[in-house]
Structure formats: structure tokens, C-alpha cells
Deep mutational scan, measured.
Amino acid sequence: ASVAVIAAGTQGNIFATSALRSMRFLQILRMVRMDRRGGTWKLLGSVVYAHSKELITAWYIGFLVLIFASFLVYLAEKDANSDFSSYADSLWWGTITLTTIGYGDKTPHTWLGRVLAAGFALLGISFFALPAGILGSGFALKVQEQHRQKHFEKRRMPAANLIQAAWRLYSTDMSRAYLTATWYYYDSILPSFRELALLFEHVQRARNGGLRPLEVRRAPVPDGAPSRYPPVATCHRPGSTSFCPGESSRMGIKDRIRMGSSQRRTGPSKQHLAPPTMPTSPSSEQVGEATSPTKVQKSWSFNDRTRFRASLRLKPRTSAEDAPSEEVAEEKSYQCELTVDDIMPAVKTVIRSIRILKFLVAKRKFKETLRPYDVKDVIEQYSAGHLDMLGRIKSLQTRVDQIVGRGPGDRKAREKGDKGPSDAEVVDEISMMGRVVKVEKQVQSIEHKLDLLLGFYSRCLRSGTSASLGAVQVPLFDPDITSDYHSPVDHEDISVSAQTLSISRSVSTNMD
């Protein structure tokens, strides 16, 4: 405001104040949320940038038409019409005319000016109207692209899951042992070998009828009888010197917790746990005396209480009078009846079946994303299906024409109403129809010849004498029936064969 007042002088105070007050009108834009329509302006900018070359070309040609039209109309009207006294007036008329506004304040009066105005109007309006069409088509394409992008975003994750499931299904095939990355992934998420051994031990116990592997080994086996189970490696608790092959000598807290839970599941009659010990102070733990958990001091820290809870689970003690015997301790020893080589084939089979199920689920979810969402998608899918159906029908028609023997030239002739090819031409065609016709002709010829021969033979049998045999009239074959199959017997006289037959029969009768 200060700059405006200084620039306008003393009389500019009122002007500056009114100008600043008129800017209050811009507050109405906040009512229509114009300040939060950044996406709309961004869309407009992207459309203009995408079609910038077309817009520049249309505007450039339109500007050239405007300059030439205004100049030529000015030359034609400057002497006869006072409205075109300057080139600026003519340029104003050209702008209003070519933009199809047409105020009518300035019009050419001479015939030359009117002809020039009409010609440049028809030429220039087309170029001035091009930017509107370019922007409209650009907006339509952009909206369609955003629509497809939205659908693509919805299909991206199911497609990625389907590709991942397909690759993992491919890589978990037993015949592709060189693909090891997927197996490394499952090695990292699978439970430890100790848990798998416990699982298979329970399965084997159920197969043995509820007997433990130790009891199965204690059962008497006759001499020479084959053992029911192959000899396997035996594993004891981590306190002993022997372990399962492939295990580490260090046992983690999870393994100890699972070991304690498995020992508690063996039965309360074979294992008696004394009350857990509780320390009397955060600094020292008295293991010899058993106290109640309700006497825990409230001033303990979080670490002390955590250690106390761990001691409740991981440090059970047995009383002296209830101490288990050596046999019970041997039964409680952890027996590992299986090795990694025995378990891994079954584990890989389970993983393979899981990968198949996940692949089928991913495939079903991806197919669900291909379903249409709204009416536009339904129409688009219907149009695509219609085009596909037309293509299939056209391909089927082409194959039928190839089989029947109607080529493209014959199809055009039928469409024009011309006469089709004759039967002889159809026979000569190298097509399925021509071959079928040729075979039918040959079969008819053979059938006719057989009928003639059978009739001749029956007449010979009825006559009974050589004289009557020679008097029999043998009809000749019709050459038209034989089609294109020409037998060497067709052109010979059958009477010669009949005479030869009669001579042979007379000779045979004389010999008798």
C-alpha cells in the first residue's frame, strides 16, 4: 500500500485504499475450498504439459491467421470504412471474430473485405477451437489413466503375492535341489530340531500304542527276528556328554522351557516337584528354603522380579524323601529317536503342500481383483469380450473355409453374387472337401465294379455249361463312374476274359 501511495501521489490514498479493500473479495475463495484444490491444478498442469506441443502448434497457427486476416482486412477497409482507421481496430475485429465472440461493433463494408473476412474466419476458427478439443481429450485420457492406475494399485499386491507364491512353489520342487534360497528361508522360521524330535516322538508313541520308545526297546525280541524299528541315535539331556547330531552343545531358554513342560507332561506320578524357592531380598537368592510367592517384596526391581519368575519355571527341586529312583531318572531322560535326515523329507513334503495351498489362494485372490467394480468397468469388459468373440468367430470361419475348400476369392465371389465353382473344380482343390469328394467317387466306382462281377458270377453259375458261358453278354464299365481312378482293366474288353475262362473250363471238362 505504501508503494502504491508513493507512486500515485497524494491523490492515490483513496485509490490504494479501495484497491486493498477490493482484495477482500479473495476471501470468498476460501468458501469454495480453492486453497485446498491442489490436486485439480496439478491435474491441469499435467494435461497442459503432456499436450504442450499440440497446444503450441495450434496457438501458433491461429496467431498467424489472426495477424494476416487483420492486416488484409485493414488494407481493404481503411479507405471505405471509418471503423478500420488503424491496424489496432482491425486487430480487435480479428480477435473478436476468430474467437467466435462477434460483438458486431465493427464489420467490413466492401465486398473484398467481406470475402477476406469469411475466408479467414473459416480457416482461423478451426485453429482457435483446437486447444479446447486438445485439453478436453487430454483430461479424458488423464482421468482414464488415473482410473486404471487405481485399479492397478488394487491389483499390484495380489499380483506380487501370486508371483511370489508361484516362485516358491517352483523352487520347493524336490527335483530342483539346486534352488536353496527358499529352503534357507524356511530353515530360519521353522522350530528347532528338538521340537521336531518331540513332535515325531509323540507320533511314534501313538503308533506304538502308547508305549515310549524306551519301553519298546525293553520289550523282549526273539533271536533272529528283525527289529520293528531301525537303530537310531540316542540323545540324552544337555547335561550328559552325548547330543543329537546337528545340535549345539548350548541350550537356549526356549529349549529349557519346552524341556520343563515336556517333563511335566510325562505324568505327576513319576515326577514330584517341590515348592519353588524364593529369594528373600533382591540381592541374594536362598535356594535351600522354600517360601511362598506372596511374600515377594514390593520394592524389588523389574529385573529381580523377572529373575524370580524364571526361577519359578526353570529351577524345580525335589524333596529328599520323594527323590526318584535311578530307573525313573533313566525313563525321564530325553530320548531322541530320530535324526535330521529322517525328519527333513517329511518336513519338505509338508512345506510343499503348504506352498501349493498358498499358490491356489493367491491365484483366487488375484482373480477376484479382475472383477469389474462399476458400470464403466462392466461396459469396458463387455466390449473387450465382444471384440475377442468376433476375433474367435473370424478365426473359426477361416478354418471352416479351409476345411470346406472355400477360399478368400470364392468368398468374395459369393458376396458379389457370382456363380460358384463347379464340382470338377471342387474335386481338384487341395482341401478337405476335395479329398472327401475324391474318396467318395472312388468308393462308388469300386462298388459298381463289384456289383458287375457278382452279377457275372451268378449268371455263370446258373448257366452251368461252357457254351452258355461264352454266350453271356458282359456289360462294359461306364468310364464316368470311375472318377479319376483309372484301372488298367477298364480299357480292355471283358469278353476276352470271358473267352479265356470258357476255354479253360472246356479243357478241364475234356480232361475229366
Rank of each mutant, 00 (worst) to 15 (best):
A346S: 07
Y170C: 05
H448R: 08
Q444L: 05
E321G: 12
R435C: 00
A165T: 09
L461V: 04
D418Y: 07
Q271R: 14
R459H: 07
R505H: 01
S249T: 11
P488R: 15
G385R: 15
K376Q: 04
R207P: 05
E331V: 02
I354V: 13
G209V: 13
Q402L: 02
G391R: 15
F200C: 00
E425K: 01
K348N: 05
S422P: 07
L338R: 04
P191S: 01
T294I: 10
E492A: 11
R217P: 00
I446N: 00
K358N: 06
I351V: 06
E440K: 01
D484Y: 15
L453R: 12
Q335P: 03
T234N: 03
S192P: 01
D480H: 14
T318A: 11
S175C: 09
L199V: 10
P408S: 10
V361L: 00
N303K: 07
P408H: 03
N510Y: 08
T349S: 13
V378A: 15
R505C: 12
C244W: 09
E415G: 13
I403T: 12
G455A: 08
P276T: 14
Y382H: 10
P245T: 05
V400M: 02
T369K: 15
P191T: 09
V328L: 08
L273V: 08
V443M: 09
D410A: 06
R364T: 05
E247V: 06
A310G: 14
A165D: 10
A219G: 08
L469M: 11
V404L: 13
R212G: 13
D388Y: 15
Q297K: 13
Y184S: 13
T280S: 13
K332N: 07
P276L: 10
I354F: 08
M433T: 06
W183C: 09
D428H: 09
Q271L: 10
N208H: 02
G409W: 12
H272N: 10
R355T: 08
E195K: 12
K315N: 14
V443A: 02
K270N: 09
I354M: 00
P213A: 11
D451H: 04
Q442P: 03
L360M: 06
M174I: 09
D401A: 15
M432K: 10
G455D: 02
M259I: 04
P293R: 05
G385S: 15
L476P: 02
H272R: 10
Q204L: 08
L312P: 14
I430L: 02
R459G: 12
R406Q: 07
M259V: 01
V347G: 10
T180I: 13
R237Q: 03
E285A: 08
E429V: 10
S504Y: 10
K438R: 12
S261I: 14
V437F: 08
D223H: 06
Y457F: 14
D342V: 05
V437L: 01
S506P: 15
M174R: 06
D255G: 11
V404E: 07
D410Y: 07
Y185D: 11
R305C: 15
L312R: 06
R352C: 01
Y334N: 03
S495F: 13
E201A: 11
M433R: 05
V474L: 13
N208I: 10
C235R: 03
N510S: 15
V296E: 11
N208S: 07
R265P: 11
A329S: 15
A424P: 06
A413P: 01
Y229C: 06
S458W: 01
D322E: 09
C336W: 11
V375L: 03
S175R: 00
H202Q: 06
A362T: 06
R207C: 07
E492K: 15
I379M: 03
L452R: 07
F366L: 12
T280I: 01
F359V: 03
H491Q: 03
S299N: 06
S353A: 04
L338F: 05
S422Y: 08
P226H: 14
R305H: 10
D173E: 06
V287M: 06
Q402E: 01
P479R: 13
D490A: 15
G417R: 09
A424T: 05
Q381H: 01
T280P: 13
R309W: 08
H486P: 09
G464A: 13
I257N: 14
P279T: 02
S325T: 15
D490Y: 15
L501I: 14
R414L: 08
R355M: 06
V296A: 13
S240R: 06
Q473E: 07
I257T: 13
P226R: 09
E368V: 14
H491Y: 14
D480V: 06
L501F: 12
I253M: 02
S333C: 02
S249R: 10
R313K: 00
P345L: 07
E327D: 14
R414Q: 10
Y186D: 11
Y485C: 14
L469R: 11
F308C: 08
R218P: 11
E201V: 03
K315Q: 12
P231T: 08
V340G: 00
P268L: 12
A225V: 05
V507A: 11
I379N: 13
A329P: 01
S458T: 02
S269F: 00
E247G: 11
W183R: 12
K348R: 02
G464S: 15
S249C: 03
A310E: 11
P226A: 05
L452M: 07
A467V: 02
K298M: 12
L453Q: 02
Y334F: 11
I503S: 11
D377E: 15
G288D: 13
C235Y: 08
E337K: 09
P245S: 06
A290P: 04
F456C: 04
I403F: 09
P231S: 13
S299R: 06
K298Q: 05
H386P: 05
T180K: 11
V221L: 12
I446L: 10
A498G: 15
P479L: 12
R228P: 14
E492V: 10
P268R: 15
E331K: 08
S395G: 12
A225S: 08
A424S: 13
M511L: 15
V439E: 01
S188R: 10
E195V: 12
D480E: 12
A219E: 00
M344I: 04
W300G: 13
E440A: 01
S292C: 13
R399W: 02
D255H: 09
Y184D: 11
D423G: 15
K332R: 08
R406L: 10
R313I: 15
R355G: 06
V426M: 02
K449E: 00
D512G: 14
E440Q: 11
M511R: 12
E215Q: 04
E201D: 05
D493G: 14
D428Y: 09
R411K: 01
T172N: 05
V427E: 14
I356M: 06
R309P: 06
K358M: 02
S188G: 03
G209E: 14
S188N: 13
K419E: 03
S175N: 04
R258G: 06
V439M: 02
Y185C: 13
H236R: 11
L198P: 06
L214R: 09
V328A: 06
D480A: 05
Q442H: 13
Q204R: 02
R237W: 09
L199W: 09
V378L: 12
S463T: 12
P279R: 15
D451E: 07
R207H: 14
T234S: 08
A181T: 11
A498T: 12
P220S: 07
S240N: 03
E215G: 01
T465A: 14
I253N: 02
S431C: 08
F302V: 13
S292G: 11
L211R: 07
A166S: 09
F366I: 02
Q286E: 10
P421R: 12
K416Q: 01
G209R: 04
T291A: 14
G246E: 13
P488S: 06
S463A: 08
D410H: 01
V427M: 09
K270Q: 06
R256C: 12
R168H: 06
Q473P: 05
R307H: 13
P408L: 08
Y185H: 10
E337G: 08
M174K: 06
A471T: 04
P488H: 09
T318P: 10
F200I: 14
I494F: 03
H202N: 07
R194K: 06
L312M: 03
R228S: 07
K315T: 14
E285V: 01
V472L: 02
H272L: 12
T369S: 02
P279S: 07
S248G: 03
H448Y: 08
S242P: 11
S422C: 12
S466W: 12
R305L: 13
Q286K: 03
P479S: 15
T234P: 07
K332T: 12
Q335R: 02
S506W: 09
S261C: 10
